[in-house]
Amino acid sequence: MSTIVIGLSMGLLLFLLAAGLTLIFGMLRVINFAHGSLYMLGAYCAYQIVQTTGSFWLGLLVAPFLAAAIGALMERVALRPVYARDHVYQLLLTFGFILVIDEAVRLFWGLEYKQIAPPDLFSEPVAILGSQVPTYRLFIIGFGALIAAGLFFMLERSRYGMVIRAASGDPEMVQTLGISVSRIRTFVFAFGSGLAALGGVVAAPLLPIELGMGFSVIIDCFIVVVIGGLGNIRGAVLGALLIGMTRALGYTYAPSWVEFLTFVLLIATLVLRPEGLFSRKGRAA
């Protein structure tokens, strides 16, 4: 039971990150290498807010907005001028963001790792079907599922979602309907950055908060996005759960095979179904 809980919580945490990455890719056709850095920034913000105010919940609320503002700035100031150029420039630029954010974090918080505890509400484990399960993991599952449901609702039912889906497919056509696509790009980049930071806050009580944390998670995130199908939210959910469960089961039953299994999944996808296991043609969600 606790393996399933760990797998699901890892999966939903990965989803928060992969969703942002894939939304940004769908709209901007840019793979944002700095996504992991925004996740790390979210965790450090959570740490800082917990230190100063004692409230984890305030961190959960504030950090995403902060990261969204930074994301909006990155898109407007740096990415926008290079859309017309070769893709390499955009990749290099997002790589540059990593260096800037990492350096800023180092200057601000130093090299020593930080830690925060889960909110008091989740300090006691509960017993489910005879096994002890950390309540914070259950919170992650519930919260992640809530965000996933919200995202689906936003994408499938709201006007914003409709415009994002249309603009991900044919931005020029959307422009000719009077809609400013450059604003949508900024919005989507900011939104994805906010999701990354949200993931960082949620992960903060589970891991040491340190400079390298963005890097290790972004690799898993790329794998999720490739397995799910680039630019595809439904795929991101399923891919994230698949990777989360693979990892949790692997750690329990075959710890030295975990990385191997993950990469087998990745390679099998690329060979057998390069458009992603869960992609449906032409769909953003």
């Binding site: 006007r159 409709m162 889906r165 249309a166 959307v174």
Partner: peptide
């Protein structure tokens, strides 16, 4: 727009 149904393809023009 392939990712939109007929109704949405029309409604997006009214946004």
């Amino acid at each position: 727009f392939a990712a939109l149904n007929v109704d949405e393809n029309l409604r997006i023009a009214t946004v």
